[in-house]
Design a protein around this nucleic acid. Structure first.
Lengths: 228, 228
DNA sequence: ACCTGAACACCGTTCAAGT
DNA sequence: ACCTGAACACCGTTCAAGT
């Protein structure tokens, strides 16, 4: 009777494709062509394998993307978090934001997916940091969850809006914007008409952290309690 | 020589399909089957016409969706806005939110689309109201644009996250959540572990307006100026 | 056990031809 | 001027058969 720990030759055809290889190839394709152009068929072709082969290593396309996100989440470097609770919330949230800004398609997938229940321990570390910061500031755990959720909404919205408007327009966004605000009804929409083309200049500005500070200040003020 | 205003018979085959008919059918299909299931082919079949016919009445699918959104935006009933500037911002933003919550796919399209430059005057009225409220509170026009953008990020994020998590899970979200927080590393993630299954209870709560108030308070505080 | 091509059930869009 | 079917260039996924 063979020892339980002894390496035993497994039966059947040996694998030529591994899950790690698939994930690496997918990352390469996303970084090269963009996430909306990633298809199972192209991914298989890139690896040099039949499209149907991939279904032996991942459940389906959604599963593949989730694996990819968790792998990415483990590689996100966590900065030293400040001791001051409010600042800790800000830095943790900004870290989540920056990680997603570099890989906006992840925000898209996480939004369409229930998300938190399927994240690994490593990316959850930043969620924990936000909740812990709120609690240390004096919030109840319940309020801390609400703080995190509100920040998450703001963060995900910023990523999605900005990544999508950055893709298009660029060249003709300003022109179109200009034409648009030219024909606007100044009687009904006086402030927008007065802003005119300045909107196009203001809109692409990176104000994420400013808005985050405003939001966190407001959220923590709502949940502050007297501490002993 | 015929009079300029006289109705003249136009040459060619008379139309059997109108843009209004297409939009109405599209609305019906979206309300019935959900926006992710709307296809050009199904829409044409619903009308009882060849799929390619639609391309004589709309440029492409994206154009169709934008027409639909502007039509919808015109039908959104605008509540009486309060005089107090801060409250006006809240009510206008909440109106945008509620309109999108009823038609979450519109939020999806608006996010993926530069959006504001392609909206009609009617839906822009609520954008104007937010900007005007901020200015009346004492913000510069530039700060008011930032106020609107921040609110927009938060609003769109909330809609997308909530509409997507509502679609899935339901039945098994709680179970999965419970299983998840059972296996969480309590050493590394103490707050999340302590929350346990309560997260699943807290997450679906509608806290949009609370978070909006926190955000608006913070944003207006940042931009407040001394007024004469 | 792993890999495969054929097939299924779809997409959005173009375009030459018909009415 | 309007409508059409055929065709193009794709999708994700299943499944029986091969190694």
């Amino acid at each position: 009777m063979p020892h339980a720990d002894a390496p035993r030759p497994r039966p059947g055809r040996p694998p030529t494709t591994s899950r790690a290889q698939i994930l690496a190839a997918a990352r390469g394709l996303i970084d090269r062509d963009g996430w909306e152009r990633l298809t199972i068929r192209k991914l298989a072709a890139e690896i040099g394998v039949g499209a149907t082969t991939l279904y032996h290593h991942v459940q389906d396309k959604e599963d593949l993307l989730l694996l990819l996100i968790n792998e990415y989440g483990e590689q996100v470097s966590r900065p030293r978090l400040p001791d001051e609770p409010r600042e800790r919330v800000i830095v943790a949230a900004a870290t989540i934001h920056d990680a997603l800004a570099a890989w906006p398609w992840a925000a898209e997938v996480l939004t369409t997916d229930g998300f938190i229940a399927r994240l690994g321990d490593s990316p959850l570390g930043l969620v924990e940091a936000v909740v812990a910061g709120a609690v240390d500031h004096g919030c109840t755990p319940e309020h801390a969850v609400y703080v995190f959720r509100s920040i998450w909404y703001y963060t995900v919205g910023e990523i999605l809006v900005r990544s999508h408007t950055a893709r298009r327009g660029q060249g003709d966004a300003v022109t179109r914007q200009g034409a648009f605000f030219g024909t606007i009804d100044a009687g009904k929409l006086p402030h927008l008409a007065a802003l005119g083309d300045r909107w196009a200049v203001l809109a692409p500005r990176d104000t994420y952290v400013d808005g985050l500070r405003a939001l966190v200040d407001g959220l923590l003020a709502q949940g502050a309690r007297v501490r002993p």
